[in-house]
Simulated assay, not measured.
Amino acid sequence: MPVDSATFRTVLGQWPSGVCVVTTTGARGAHGMTASSFSSVSLDPPMVSVCLGNHLPSRMLLETAGKFAISFLGKDQAHVGRRFAGQHPEITDRFAGLDWTITPNGVPVLSDAVAWLDCRVAHAYPGGDHTIFVGAVTEAATQRVTSPLLFHSRTWGQVADPLPTAIHLTVDVAAGDPLAQALREAGARIRHDAGHAEFLVAADGTGLPSSAQVTAARRAGATVAGYVADAFDPAREPLVLATVEALAALGCDEVGLAEHPAGPASPLQVRRVLQDAIARVRPATLRVRLAGGHSLALVNALVAMKSGVSHFDTVAPGSPAAGLPLGDLLHLSRQLEVPGPIDPAEAVDGRDRLRPAQGLTSSPP
């Protein structure tokens, strides 16, 4: 017995998809609509498909024009998706007020889309109440790196990252503290140990190491980490992300984002920066150096974990450095059941030294 359309639509709603705007041209100029029924078809030659309802004006326009373009939307463009889905009927010109670029094929693409494809219609197949258009890709571009906009269960959303499978720690320890050896044996890295080269760079790129410096450090066998200072200042977000890309391009093994010790960052800003930074640093490792001593410290650590970060810088008891206390992060990881290299009950004599800061409690493992 055939499945009724309401049930079918509900089931399909459980499958998350990306969101794109399909554009083409006609006698009245540019035309566009939001679609999630997009798929890649072939790599060689490059081909994609999009399915359009037979009742839609876009379907006839696209067939007549013989060409179309796809603009992939980012996490911050739900308003564009809603506009081209017709959810704002008061907007009569869907292109008004948005920046568009005309492709070599003569079709508009969103200027600040994550990426776009310019296509020539190669095939059109009947697909029930839809037409399946297969496009031969003639031009393509990636315009910015950010998380995608998703559509799931009739709701616009973003990627929700799971917790990391484990956390990896670099610990700042006071000089001569016997705790350092215990931490090394437990699998943590000690910040000022040999074999670890660190560069601190301003958000605007001031102090960026040269390629020769990075190469020399790596040849000496060091793990090279480039840190961006005050990385979660909203006013500097574009500069921070550009500096992140520059450090990755220099060949740093790790790129770190450091929170300003005197100005706690908003968890929302931490999330925004990390979502974009984690895509820009690959294949390097992204790590964070969060501030401690404020009420949002562990919130920001949790946000970092949920944003895909598994490498953290912490500060051991007795260290003169400012930062997230080691005991606090261990407490959080235990509560979340995220394993780390250190079990304070086994790795360190004197468990009291790694207890969370005042106001936090945890029972012995």
Rank of each mutant, 00 (worst) to 15 (best):
R154P: 00
A186Q: 12
P148I: 07
T165M: 12
F151K: 00
V121Q: 12
T155Y: 01
V107K: 03
W116C: 03
S153H: 09
H152M: 10
A124I: 14
P89Y: 06
H152R: 09
H123N: 09
R120I: 10
A65D: 07
A124H: 01
A115T: 05
C119P: 03
Y125C: 13
G187R: 10
R83M: 11
V80N: 00
D193Y: 03
D118I: 01
T64K: 10
H88Y: 15
M60Y: 06
H123F: 08
I132S: 10
R94T: 08
T155G: 02
E63S: 13
T101A: 14
A136Q: 14
R120P: 01
Q87W: 13
M60E: 10
L169M: 11
F151V: 02
D177C: 08
F68E: 03
P57T: 12
G157A: 03
R59H: 08
L169Y: 05
H168V: 13
T170L: 05
L117F: 14
R83Q: 11
R154H: 06
Q181F: 07
L62E: 04
F72K: 01
L169R: 05
G128H: 07
G74Q: 03
V173D: 02
R144I: 07
P104M: 13
S153D: 13
N105S: 15
Q181H: 14
A141K: 11
S153M: 11
D172P: 00
Q77K: 01
P126L: 13
D177S: 13
T155P: 00
G187D: 10
H55R: 14
Q87S: 10
E139Q: 14
F84L: 05
L163T: 03
V107N: 04
G176N: 10
A136P: 01
I102V: 15
C119I: 03
G106I: 09
L61H: 08
Y125E: 15
P178M: 11
A194C: 07
T92W: 06
A136S: 12
V137A: 05
A113D: 02
G135H: 04
F84P: 00
L179K: 04
A141W: 04
A115Y: 02
S58Y: 03
T138E: 15
S111Y: 08
I70K: 00
K67P: 00
L149F: 06
I91L: 15
T146D: 15
L52H: 01
F68R: 02
C119H: 07
A140L: 15
T64M: 06
A78S: 13
V107I: 15
L61V: 12
A122G: 08
D93I: 10
E139S: 15
N54V: 14
H168I: 10
G97I: 07
F68N: 02
A186N: 11
W100K: 01
L110T: 02
Q158R: 13
D118V: 00
A174G: 13
H192K: 11
K67D: 05
E185H: 12
H55F: 10
H192P: 04
S111F: 06
